[in-house]
Design a binder for these strands. Structure first.
Lengths: 101, 101
DNA sequence: CATTCTTACGGGATACGTAATCATG
DNA sequence: CATGATTACGTATCCCGTAAGAATG
């Protein structure tokens, strides 16, 4: 299980369709198909039902989606907090900034 | 930023030393060195100070460590909840199980 | 010289895209 | 035939380990 797989999984979940999900995630359909299959193999349980009109999440898929959103949100927060220049408004801080130079 | 990188980062943070971290994470020193450098490049900020006796986390490193632990814990939880056979004790459930067959 | 991090380099695994295939209506 | 998922296959990218290099005490 990997953060990239979770991103792809979310795209498929939200679009219910590999074509649109591929567009949303900027990747080819086949890559998404592979990654979903890998996740299902890892969890030993199907995450989507394959319908003639697209992919419909199973109960396990629904559960994973909630976790996946939490995880990706946490990673985005970590990224923002770790990056240089937190970029809060100067007016909100009364004391001096540690401006280099 | 990737879940694998976070695992490696945690090992380095906890060991303060690439050799021991490599042992803890079952990977070579050079791989850890690369991944830490990649993270620092991505965040445009150093995560460790290189001392002659090992690696000492910066303030940004300390911040990232807290986030990393949360994220990996969330991924472990997602993994456990998504896997087949949630494995709660049968005695705790009064009604019948959806046993196939 | 011992220890520790960094850099160079080559092999192996993984992810990817194009295209062909199967399934459905 | 139109739509949508899977599979096949070759390519590109990334990760990794061995080994050499640079810094410190």
């Amino acid at each position: 299980m990997d953060s990239r797989q979770l991103r792809y999984f979310i795209a498929v979940y939200e679009q219910r369709n590999l074509s649109r999900a591929a567009d949303q995630a900027n990747v080819a359909q086949s890559a998404l198909s592979h990654h979903i299959a890998n996740l299902e193999a890892e969890f030993a349980t199907p995450l989507f039902e394959r319908k003639p009109r697209g992919m419909e999440p199973t109960a396990a898929g629904e559960r994973l989606y909630e976790h996946a959103r939490i995880i990706l949100r946490a990673m985005a927060a970590a990224s923002a907090k770790s990056r240089k220049a937190p970029a809060s408004s100067p007016a909100t801080s009364r004391s001096a900034w540690p401006i280099p130079g």
